[in-house]
Simulated assay, not measured.
Amino acid sequence: MQIPQFGLGTYRLNDQILINSVKTALDVGYRAIDTAQIYENEAAVGQAIRESGIARKDIFLTTKIWINNFSEQRLIPSLKESLQKLGTDAVDLTLIHWPAPSQGTDITEVMQLLLEAKQQGLTQQIGISNFNIALTQQAIDSIGVEHIATNQIELSPYLQNQHLVDYLREQNIDVTSYMTLAYGKVLNDPTLLEIAAQHQATSAQVALAWALQQGYAVIPSSTKRENLISNLKAQDLKLSAEEMQMIAQLERNGREIDPPELAPVWDK
């Protein structure tokens, strides 16, 4: 099952706000939902899916394993707990959330445990998140590139991560972009606003279209129906080669999320 190019992120959303966001997104046409153990909202995501009236088989559901659950004793049991909260027998994609090298993570062991979860039928696909080139290579060496569906990484017009992206493309590993709007910082960028005006679009749609046109999957979040609908329309926006080049010039290594206890040394 191919990773959908457009999904809903649920980071920092909880309780009824999360439930409303997911149900609204599903109502307006989203069919992919991204969550994680550390978000502490898996049960609410599961409730929203049940209340939405959309069949589980029609939804691509992703969760991520938190670093406390990397051990042999915890990884598969924690995923089973996630499935129980989500109200499903299996998710479509399970990721290692952060590599946490400073915590002594054994990438080989963690990836092999994740592959075992896949073989047990707990998840259709597996992958990684926030891995740099060196750690992605370790993951490949441990279980084979054919088992790694995606690397979910922070990407935006202000953080384009080109070396890592090029490497992932060489390996045929899909790129999932999170924080594509850089916590909203790109929305007032003059270049994006100029391009948006040419297309009668929004700057958010331009940023998302930039990512989509490069083949990335995107998972923006919103709690407002109009924004959820507007973001979806980015799929219909086609940017010219000149406009894509204008956005390429916005690179400023503007990383928004860089927890020292979790992050690797980032590729320059």
Rank of each mutant, 00 (worst) to 15 (best):
H97P: 00
D258G: 08
Q198T: 13
S82Q: 06
E72C: 01
A204V: 02
T150E: 13
S82G: 11
A217V: 01
V28G: 12
P77E: 05
I49E: 09
Q112C: 02
K57I: 00
A241D: 12
W210A: 11
L79E: 04
T62N: 07
D15M: 09
D258Y: 11
L239M: 07
H97Y: 01
N172P: 14
A248T: 04
T176A: 13
P264N: 00
S78H: 09
K118T: 07
T35I: 11
I59V: 09
G29N: 03
Y158W: 14
I133A: 01
D27Y: 10
H163Y: 12
I153P: 10
T180P: 08
E194D: 15
A25E: 08
Y11N: 06
K224M: 01
K57R: 09
K80P: 14
T35G: 14
L212A: 07
I38T: 14
M244F: 05
H163C: 09
V22M: 11
L192K: 08
P99M: 05
R252S: 14
T176I: 12
I65R: 03
L228E: 00
R74Y: 08
P220N: 01
W98V: 01
N69G: 01
V110W: 09
T35A: 06
L79Y: 03
I54Q: 14
L228F: 00
G7Q: 04
H147D: 01
N253Q: 10
Y39A: 04
G7T: 01
A211P: 08
G46C: 03
I133S: 01
Q124H: 12
G87S: 10
L250D: 06
A201S: 07
N253W: 10
A204R: 03
L193S: 11
S129Y: 06
S156H: 13
I38S: 15
I128Q: 05
